[in-house]
Design a protein around this nucleic acid. Structure first.
Lengths: 241, 241
DNA sequence: ACGATCAAACTGTCGGACAGTTTAATCTTT
DNA sequence: AAAGATTAAACTGTCCGACAGTTTGATCGT
């Protein structure tokens, strides 16, 4: 016996179910929108109990791979790849106070800089057009009442997300969204929003878009970082009051 | 009725259990290492069935908050905050082919650059000492047989992780580890490891450490990015053969 | 033709049972 | 008395059966 065998702990049976279904989804045998068989059918397919199946479904749900609905025609449906689990993870790290607002802000600044830099390298004519469409929509929402500022912020988020898509890195995009999901409460709560600040925000975005249009990665990177950093500093100042 | 009420879908009862326990952990009422009551006790505490409790425990387990053991003195124990769920998420995105190796590599290059830059700003005397300790250990593992190269790679990983710790951003550290977990298989499989390559790797780390010691963030950033990028390119070249 | 009612297909929740695993105490055996 | 074997106790792992709640589509009544 020279060899070191690993303790072969038998998988818990729900884990087997999870693994099989994850594999099916990743292999494309189950596509987004597809329905999984009902619990009773799964129970037969995997030859286990309903309890075991339900534990497996909870795990898959939590991984963001499926969503479950009650009623006839209900059951588990495969979801499009999404960023919810990533956001949840970040949220927990924050709630555990392992990650501070500064940590979050620094991470975002790094990403936004890099994203804008890449976007400036990659953007084609159509990307620029879509970018400008979003900007003009954002502008419209400033002119009206504060009640529609929420719409502006949505446009702002879309702008940043679109940049990430142009940059062409889904991992970057997922992290950006996760960070955004967790930082926006602070922004809404602690920034002294006014029409002037919205305009300032808007102008920054325009400058970034312009740098991207002119295919100037260095400038785009610096503008994006400055933009993020400016709003972070503003928030921190207000946070201490 | 001017107001829009949200559809008050009552929480599924396992979700209530999850929320309460997450809250307890985040509020510090449950600390790492603490034991949760056994399922039977939890069932009484939350006044539900054992099945519901078990579904909740599966979710908490998947979130990386607890680990469960069988037997007497077993049960659910609260874990230290860890990066496993983050790694799992990234792994799924890769398996779904939403994230390519290039995406992973680009993300890593961005992070390593930023981390080294920050580390150069933050490092104190002691940090430098620990860094050099790791480096000398790494060096020892090169001189010996290929069987101990695994140890070198462990040291390499420790080095990068330590940089992230010096940089002082746990979010960055978590993402670095997650990316590393998912990229290392490629490195082991597709890089033509030899004593020369290990030495090259080692030398890069030394240069980065030196730049950090000399408090030169710009240089540290560039060296780190170059290092990562060099090995990525090498791998891609071998990947196409 | 239109709304009310009802049946069917599901998930959500409960209780009970027993098998499997791990720890610690107890009981041998030398 | 020390080392090993046995056993009891405290847990989780798995199964079954039952019924309530929810949603959809068909059926019925007007």
């Amino acid at each position: 016996m020279n060899v070191q065998f690993k303790k072969m702990k038998p998988l818990k049976s729900y884990q087997h179910v999870v693994d099989e279904i994850v594999k099916a989804i990743c292999d494309g045998k189950l596509k987004a929108g597809d329905r999984l068989p009902p619990e009773m059918k799964l129970k037969e397919l995997f030859d286990t109990s309903r309890g075991t199946i339900r534990e497996a479904l909870r795990v898959l749900e939590q991984k963001g791979l499926i969503a479950i609905r009650t009623g006839v025609k209900g059951g588990a449906r495969v979801l499009e790849a999404n960023t919810k689990p990533m956001s949840d993870n970040v949220a927990i790290l924050i709630r555990q106070q392992k990650v501070s607002l500064q940590n979050l802000a620094e991470f975002r600044e790094m990403m936004e800089g890099h994203i804008s830099e890449q976007a400036a390298k990659m953007a084609d004519k159509n990307d620029i057009k879509v970018l400008n469409t979003i900007l003009s929509q954002a502008k419209d929402h400033i002119k009206t009442k504060p009640s529609s500022w929420k719409e502006f912020h949505k446009m702002d988020a879309s702008f940043h997300r679109l940049l990430a898509q142009i940059a062409g890195n889904p991992l970057l995009e997922a992290n950006l969204v996760a960070v955004h999901d967790n930082i926006q409460i602070y922004f809404h709560q602690y920034l002294p929003w006014s029409e002037a600040l919205l305009l300032d925000n808007y102008k920054d975005l325009c400058d970034i878009a312009k740098a991207i249009e002119q295919k100037d990665p260095i400038l785009a990177c610096r503008l994006a970082k400055d933009h993020v950093s400016k709003f972070n500093e503003l928030m921190e100042k207000n946070l201490n009051d």
